[in-house]
Each structure stands twice: as structure tokens, then as C-alpha cells.
């Protein structure tokens, strides 16, 4: 390992995984604290990276602090490994670590993601790192950080609940699309990052460790494996995920994955494709797990 670190320094003049070891240690310490208090936002000394604030620096700092030479990394944005931002982040990691990367969800030890959780069920040996623009689920009802911290401390969540109440009264249903708030371990309400509602149930009692990093807002939080994560809902207005009933992926034919709606240039028609490109590829090659996390009943 030491040799590898020296080698990578020689190449670019930067430390292994860019961030200096002391900072990495601090980030890992804060991450451990986050794991110990599921859903609680731990402030951390967010470092500046050569990636713009708001472009995944929080997730990246967690990933960089966790990576060892034997890790296999996958980076996705909108479910896609080839999205330009995912490519950019992956390039930075590869340049400063020389570690192996993969497009394959199954092969990866660490997956950094923006806005999606892979369709295929992840295992206990894997870590999913989510990029977070707004760590504070209460921000929609309270702009002040000083106040939301007190609200969390006192479990004073009625304002957010009234927001949902008002939504139903005004619109006949809750209008929050992505970033759907969830109660973690019966204690903290948490912003699951802008994943679609489709992905929120995957957080509940999962085998995988989920880590959330907000670089600009300087917060880390976590959902350890086998933790209760319940999206906020009323007894008579249940949480529901996006409705793709009657639709299927135009490429692999999946009827049980989150779909992107696409306007076809040539035909002028709307088509649908799997948002998780690796899942779609694996289905085409017959590799994808037929069961697992992907739903058949939606």
C-alpha cells in the first residue's frame, strides 16, 4: 500500500486519493459518528476539491477518505456511469489513486452516486455513497440552520408534517417528488438526497451501508445496515413511488425499474428507458438478478 501511495504521488504530485491523510482521517471519524447516530447530520471540515461545490464534493470526500488500493469503484449520475459528471469524478479518483473501476454494480466495493440507488440489490460488503445538495430535510419549512438544529434536537417535526398536510389539502396529495423525507430509526427525519421516491424503500432495512455527503453544506450522515427508514406518510395518505404502470424500457423491456422519459428525435414519440444503465445492460446480457431489489409489481 505504501508503495502505491508513493507511486501515485510521483505521477501527479498529489497524495493517494488527493486529500491529505490527516483530513481523510477526520472525515472517516465523522463518518463513524454518523453511522453511530443514524440520520443525524454530523458537521465536518469540508475540504476544497478541484471539483465545484455542488457537484458532488461531499460524496467525493467520503469516497476518497474510504478508498484503499484494493477497492473497486463505480460512479454513477442519474443511474448512468457515462454521464459527464460521473466521468469527471471517476477520472479524478483514478488519476489520484490508480484503483480499478467498474460499471458493474455487483463488482463494485464502493459506489458513488448522484440521484439514484442501483436497481439491483446491493450487499453487505458494499458501500453506497450519495451526493447531497441539501442535507436538511426541514429546510423547506425553516431556512435557518441554527433553528433546524434545535428542531432536530427536540424532535420538533410538526412544521414539516403540517407542510405535508397543507400539500394534501391544497393539491389533493403530497407534491414532493424526489428528496422525499424519511424518519430514520424512529429518531431523526432525514433528507435521502434527491433520489426518486422509487429508491426510498431501498434504504429501509438494507444490507448495505449508505453514506451521505454534503460538501458545500459540510455535513455527513448515514444509514447503517438494517436500520428502519420510513418515509413520512399519513395513515390514510400513504407514501407512494413514481407510477410507471403500463410502461416498459424500450431497450431491455423491464417493467420493474425506474424509467427515464425520452423524446425520440426521429419519430417524435416518447419512449422510456431504464435510468440504471448497468441494470439495463445486464438484463440484455441476461446477467441481472431477476429478483432482488427491482420490483415486479409496480
Amino acid at each position: 500500500m505504501i508503495k502505491q501511495i508513493v507511486d501515485s504521488r510521483k505521477d501527479k504530485g498529489y497524495n493517494f486519493a488527493f486529500i491529505d491523510e490527516q483530513a481523510k482521517r477526520e472525515i472517516r471519524r465523522k463518518t463513524l459518528k454518523a453511522v453511530a447516530i443514524p440520520g443525524y447530520q454530523v458537521p465536518f471540515g469540508s475540504r476544497e476539491l478541484p471539483i465545484a461545490r455542488g457537484w458532488g464534493t461531499g460524496g467525493l470526500q467520503i469516497t476518497l477518505s474510504l478508498l484503499g488500493p484494493d477497492d473497486v469503484l463505480k460512479v454513477i449520475d442519474q443511474g448512468c456511469d457515462g454521464s459527464v459528471n460521473a466521468v469527471n469524478l471517476r477520472n479524478l479518483v483514478v488519476e489520484t489513486t490508480k484503483i480499478a473501476t467498474t460499471l458493474d454494480t455487483e463488482e463494485a466495493t464502493i459506489i458513488q452516486t448522484r440521484h439514484r440507488i442501483p436497481e439491483e440489490k446491493m450487499t453487505g460488503g458494499q458501500i453506497l455513497v450519495l451526493q447531497v445538495p441539501y442535507p436538511e430535510a426541514l429546510r423547506i419549512v425553516e431556512p435557518s440552520e441554527a433553528k433546524t438544529r434545535v428542531m432536530h434536537a427536540e424532535m420538533d417535526y410538526s412544521k414539516l408534517w403540517v407542510y405535508l398536510y397543507e400539500d394534501i389539502v391544497r393539491w389533493g396529495g403530497i407534491t414532493i417528488g424526489a428528496r422525499y423525507p424519511a424518519m430514520v430509526n424512529k429518531r431523526y427525519i432525514m433528507d435521502p438526497s434527491p433520489i426518486p421516491r422509487w429508491d426510498v424503500p431501498k434504504l429501509h432495512m438494507a444490507d448495505t451501508l449508505y453514506l451521505f455527503g454534503a460538501g458545500r453544506e459540510k455535513r455527513i450522515y448515514a444509514i447503517p445496515p438494517h436500520t428502519e427508514v420510513i418515509p413520512l406518510e399519513f395513515e390514510d395518505h400513504k407514501f407512494r413511488v413514481e407510477d410507471f404502470s403500463g410502461l416498459s424500457c424500450g431497450r431491455c423491456g423491464s417493467t420493474s425499474s425506474f424509467l427515464d422519459e425520452i423524446f425520440d428525435d426521429s419519430s417524435g414519440q416518447k419512449t422510456y428507458l431504464c435510468s440504471d444503465t448497468n441494470y439495463c445492460d445486464r438484463r440484455l446480457t441476461g446477467l441481472a438478478q431477476r429478483k432482488g431489489n427491482a420490483r415486479n409489481d409496480r
Binding site: S158, K159, W161, V162, Y165, F234, E235
Partner: peptide
């Protein structure tokens, strides 16, 4: 009162602190 919440929402705010999460009942 929270002037940007409806009148029912204002009452609901109190009820929600008492763990009543049934919209119809609220």
C-alpha cells in the same frame, strides 16, 4: 398562528405533536 398555514393546518400542527397521523381524523 402561522399566517402562511391554513386555519386547519394551524390546528393540525398541534394535533400532529400528539402523534395523530391520520389526515381524516385530523
Amino acid at each position: 398562528l402561522r399566517m402562511n398555514f391554513s386555519c386547519g393546518g394551524n390546528v393540525a400542527e398541534k394535533l400532529l405533536t400528539a402523534d395523530c397521523y391520520h389526515l381524516g381524523k385530523i
